[in-house]
Design a protein around this nucleic acid. Sequence first.
RNA 1: CGGGGUGUAGCGCAGCCUGGUUAGCGCACUGCGUUUGGGACGCAGGGGCCGGCGGUUCAAAUCCGCCCACCCCGACCA
Length: 586
Amino acid sequence: MRMSQMFGQTLREAPADAEVVSHQLLVRAGFIRQLGAGIYTLMPLGMRTTVKVETILREEMNRIGGQEIFMPVVHPAELWKETGRWYKIGDEMSRFHDKNGRDMVLAMTHEEVVADLVRKDIQSYRQLPRMVYHLQTKWRDDPRPRAGLIRVREFTMKDSYTLDKDEEGLDKQYRAHYQAYFDIFNRCSLPVIAVGADVGMMGGSLAHEYMYLTPIGEDTLLLSDCGYKANRQIALFKKPEPEAEDALDVEKVATPDVATIEALAEFLDIPKSRTAKAVFLMATFSEEKKDVEKLVFAVVRGDMDLNETKLMNAVKAKELRPAHDEEIADVGAVAGYASPIGINKEKIILVVDDLIPNLPNLVAGANEAGFHLRNTNYGRDYEAEIVADIVSAEEGYLCPKCGEPMQAQRGVEVGNIFKLGTDFTVPMGGNFLDEDGKEKPVIMGSYGIGSGRLVQSVVEEHNDENGIIWPISVAPYHVHLVGLRGGEEAAAKLYDELEAAGLEVLYDDRDESPGVKFKDADLIGVPIRITVSKRSLEEGSTEFKLRREDDRQKVALEDTVAKALEYKATLEAEVASTVVEIPYED
RNA sequence: CGGGGUGUAGCGCAGCCUGGUUAGCGCACUGCGUUUGGGACGCAGGGGCCGGCGGUUCAAAUCCGCCCACCCCGACCA
């Protein structure tokens, strides 16, 4: 590509609304342009890198038996009504009517379409196992797009789906993905870890998330030196052992204008850990066809944070939202001064963290504005319907496996794998006839990688103060050829020769000063730079520089193509050497 | 959805508080000339419904109201 002909330009300054380095660089270097919140155009450079990433995705999916298909981005709503997700998912799914007034949806994901294919095309166990995948646009009207391509509303995803006749088959395909995903990220030179994850709205039994560890990540992970690692949504931890203490009599104390745990601890001069915190949430349950809301009253130790994912799983709700003050008052509780003692238990589901029964003499609300109770004791003063772990793990909490303090780190979820089971094939009738003559639902797995998020994560990992430093595997070009004054003719000839040798070359033939060309080369970040100038030609040479290194090297003009091929091979071999077997961890 | 912030040329910004010539600066862009190994210089240019609507006023980028868009934190999220 001759730069003088390329659509798009580099920017000296990044737009003010780009905060994350990788976002700034992708915009400045001319890879992406924003169209709206969470909606981006891929420019020629961004497109080339994306194609590189997608090629890797295809190769690795094909390698484990994937068959590429292409499913639509617009779906009839009927499919989503069949699995219930039409009702379950809120604003995040965009809906519209076609000209006949039929409900349509923009695809957020494709489980329903796959299940529909299953019921149309799979009849026998002889047709299993199978694996299909596609690369397709997804639309999720996310409440908060952010950080460039890291979190967008419209994005391209590689999603694959496995179809099996039994759990063993699913496990086999799941493990194949587990390894293939590491291979994919390694080929992109992106370091990731796989962590246990909540199955969330996908349902199913087991899930891993592939996390790129970085402060710009939006998920929090808990990591232990012993190897335990999990998303905070589900991370376990070892609860502290409280000191034994005799239960004392309940005592009502006036606590005027003390409505928070902080204020309460200060007012009574006690640690927050000696208080019980009450949190109210409205939970939605499906009963028959209707949704029913019920107030969940959760109690955790005052210094700990409620984990809504754990709570949601504990009460088996499909949705949780903060309760309004009126809803809290309706059950006889007073926000800020609430406790389970003396509450109308008919109307609520009381859930107590499993640490609470071991904690004697906690301070809790009196359900009366301005008053708290000292020395409340679980079992004597109240009992809960559910006792479960409903607290979020934090930095420094003890590892559930080894008991040592854990570290909290942020991460970007660049991929995930799910054992879905029969959650989609049962409601949609995706059955097959098994060897034993019985009809059974096909067992599914679902596996996703967002290509844009992956591209930006690579940039976040590989950059310096001058710009991007692409790994050669996903670089938009292999070689950035800089032609300076006096070297135009030789550069143009070299450009043709390099391309003829199979190299992808970005040739800066613009009428610009050397400074501008070098700055742009650094910004765009192509791994191998070759400069041809009057100065170099006087010595009969060209100048090589790797983007990631500072030193330059003179190479005889006639050896330039060979040298470029050699560098490319070396860099590719380096990347390839990182692709290794990763032990599978549940 | 809650909190905070920003909308003035392609990008970065000043002007607004205290209303009043033709709305300004840097980069980018066009032409000419000089320059040429790390974002050059001179001269001459082009480009703006000052986010939108409404109001106050003789007069609004500037004051007031409503709306919209975008960004950040949180909530949410396969």
